[in-house]
């Protein structure tokens, strides 16, 4: 396989990763890392560097559209970034203390639980109309969005901010340590713990993952994990896919988004457990 074949085929796969990632609020690393390591036999360190690029590309590509369409909860997203960025920076220092295998198992179990929690909420469509969460009220994290699938404006209240912050800190930590999975924890944190509508959770996760990834991207660049021949097709493909995928979210129902998310979460969770138990 020559470099041209590699670039073209990887770009096409990246488009698919971008569409999927933008729809369910993940960074596409779930597709990119296994494709690079298993299909192309690329070193895991370089694959993780490419995954970080993919996360930022999905985020910027999709968020540009979601923010414009008012699907993103800007205030909640920016508020929760306190926890994700702090987690990401502290994660860079914990790498030496925590063994990766333990992390994979821990993260796999957390994701298995959150896929179950998300699945249990699959019929929940109506958001909360009251909240006595002090933090959410103080920072005015509540919001509303126009849902094209239901053709109406839906306003919602946010609860469980403290639990949300804890989960976001873990998401940032894990994303810095493993280079993956930041959206997989962010979406359940917002959907299940904080009761944001599923589509808003996905759009807001998309908005946030770029910042979380950027907080650890400097380290990956300096360590020489960002290989141009891999990063170029991934960045271009994912951006194209995410821009296209962002047009889809509005039209599908929250239930569909949740189900797609649960399926992907189960896959990631198994992948993590496998890495932790049979490395």
């Amino acid at each position: 396989m020559t470099p041209l074949d590699f670039v073209v085929s990887l770009a096409l796969i990246s488009v698919a990763a971008g569409v999927l990632g933008s729809l369910i609020g993940l960074g596409g690393g779930v597709v990119i890392v296994p494709v690079l390591t298993l299909l192309y036999h690329v070193d895991i360190r370089l694959a993780i560097g490419a995954s970080i690029v993919s996360v930022i590309a999905t985020s910027s590509g999709a968020a540009a559209a979601y923010v414009r369409e008012r699907m993103t909860n800007l205030r909640a997203g920016m508020f929760l970034e306190i926890a994700t960025t702090t987690g990401a920076v502290s994660g860079a220092y914990l790498t030496t203390i925590l063994p990766a295998r333990f992390l994979f198992v821990f993260f796999g179990l957390v994701l298995a639980y959150s896929s179950f929690a998300t699945f249990r909420r699959r019929h929940v469509a109506e958001p909360l109309s009251v909240s006595n969460d002090r933090i959410a009220n103080y920072f005015d994290l509540h919001g509303s969005y126009y849902d094209p699938a239901e053709d109406r404006e839906i306003s919602y209240k946010v609860v469980g901010t403290k639990l949300g912050l804890v989960l976001m800190y873990v998401a940032g930590l894990v994303s810095a340590l493993l280079g993956i999975g930041s959206g997989a924890l962010k979406v359940p944190a917002m959907d299940s713990a904080m009761h944001l509508p599923m589509k808003v959770s996905s759009a807001t996760s998309n908005f946030m993952i770029g910042v979380t990834a950027a907080a650890s991207a400097g380290v990956y660049f300096i360590r020489g994990q960002i290989d141009p021949i891999i990063a170029a097709p991934v960045a271009a493909g994912v951006l194209l896919g995410a821009t296209f995928g962002a047009r889809v979210l509005g039209r599908v129902t929250s239930k569909t988004v949740r189900l797609v998310f649960v399926i992907v979460l189960v896959v990631i969770s198994l992948e993590m457990l496998q890495k932790g138990i049979f490395p």
């Binding site: 396989m1 020559t2 470099p3 590699f6 070193d43 290989d227 021949i229």
Partner: peptide, 29 residues
């Protein structure tokens, strides 16, 4: 990259992409 390195381009060429994706590949960091 492709313009400067003719060997990268052909579809059935001898030059493998793996030379560019190994841990020893030089690139700016």
């Amino acid at each position: 990259m492709f313009a400067h390195h003719g060997a990268y381009v052909p579809i059935r060429g001898q030059f493998s992409y793996r030379k560019l994706t190994s841990r020893s590949t030089p690139f700016p960091h």
